[in-house]
């Protein structure tokens, strides 16, 4: 815990953005460990994969494009400090009269949750209660969550895939991109070197295992921690590793951008489709009971399908975001070449 605070404090003060990013990753990872000690294994899994994994990759990708040194400053900002202290004070004020954490008779544990804990094994028949709440009781939230990822994928594509415009009019506004940079080249594609034997061999050995593990997480989420989201992230991580080691073009030839866009959409449609089918069969939206003659079997089938939908969308969206960032580097590199000529 104290490590956590130390980590965040140093994020605030460190000036090199690479170091700050790494510290953020470490904070996420410590957080994941704390989540395990708090019994939230699924969340810990996700936090480790997302916070310490994917988001670090994204930050580094960005820093490669924008430069990693923060401008010398930091002057002391009084206004924000006052606001922060005020927010903290309100939260501290709320501590009194608050139920003590960890006690079994808190309202959190006595009102809605017992139903999930006591009845979900019989109503849904899935041992992992997090999965049953996630995919069935609050399945609509998860549908929304899938949509959030879809929206992010769409948004990043919209923002980053734009061609450069007004080239002929005002070239002087386009500041050359490697100005103010600290010695790093702008392109990520250079990462895929042809000559590094060891990474190649290790990656070739690792990637199949990553995919197998992802599939295990995907379909085993009913019984242990895991599920579509975590599996999707792992799957995407496998392909990203592939892209980093063997260059982006190879990865693109495996999974093309067009296919990714199709897959992002397909995942959402699969999830929504399950809902629509259950409507047609006479239930409410996402009511899995009607999917099979036996309600529990129906729940099983429904959860399996929607988790698959989540997995597909997450994998594809993560890849789309990654491709967009790296593709941007290519675009910039191409432009820099043009300018040189």
């Amino acid at each position: 815990m104290l490590l956590l605070i130390a980590g965040t404090m140093s994020v605030l003060f460190v000036r090199n953005l690479f170091v700050a990013t790494m510290l953020l990753g470490i904070v996420s990872f410590i957080m994941a460990l704390i989540f395990i000690s708090l019994d939230a294994v699924d969340v810990a899994f996700t936090e480790a994969a997302v916070g310490a994994g994917i988001s670090t990759v994204l930050y580094i990708g960005t820093l490669a494009l924008v430069g990693s040194q923060e401008k010398d400053q930091p002057k002391f900002a009084a206004g924000p400090l006052v606001i922060c202290l005020a927010v903290g004070a309100v939260l501290y004020y709320a501590t009194y009269e608050m139920p003590r954490f960890g006690e079994a008779n808190n309202p959190v544990h006595t009102h809605v949750a017992p139903r999930y804990i006591n009845d979900s094994p019989t109503e849904i028949g899935v041992p992992n209660m997090v999965t049953s709440v996630l995919a069935s009781y609050r399945g609509y939230d998860t549908f929304g969550e899938t949509t959030v990822i879809f929206a992010a994928g769409i948004g990043v594509l919209l923002i980053l895939r734009q061609r450069r415009r007004r080239k002929n009019e005002d070239d002087e506004t386009d500041v050359p991109l490697d100005e103010g940079k600290t010695g790093r080249s702008g392109s990520l594609t250079g990462l895929g070197s042809q000559h590094d034997l060891i990474p190649h061999v290790i990656a070739k050995l690792l990637i199949p295992f990553i995919f197998v593990f992802a599939l295990y997480v995907q379909f085993h989420g009913d019984y242990g921690p895991g599920g579509g989201f975590q599996a999707g992230v792992i799957f995407a991580a496998g392909i990203i590793l592939y892209a980093l080691v063997f260059s982006l073009d190879y990865a693109r030839s495996v999974v093309s951008e067009r296919a990714i866009l199709f897959l992002i959409s397909a995942g959402v449609l699969l999830y929504g489709g399950v809902g629509v089918v259950s409507m047609m069969l006479g239930g409410n939206f996402l009511d899995y009971n009607v999917l099979a003659s036996d309600p529990v079997a129906g729940q099983h089938l429904g959860i399996l399908l929607v988790e698959l939908g989540v997995g597909i969308t997450v994998t594809a969206a993560m890849l789309a975001i990654f491709y967009a960032f790296v593709g941007r580097a290519d675009l910039i590199a191409a432009k820099a070449e043009q300018e040189e000529n």
Binding site: A40, D42, T46, A113, Y116, V130, R138, A152, F229
Partner: peptide, 17 residues
């Protein structure tokens, strides 16, 4: 309690997005 876990799974996704 599994419910907060579910909520935070969603929130993590929102965060990365």
């Amino acid at each position: 309690n599994p419910l907060p876990h579910v909520l935070i799974l969603t929130a993590i996704v929102v965060g990365i997005a």
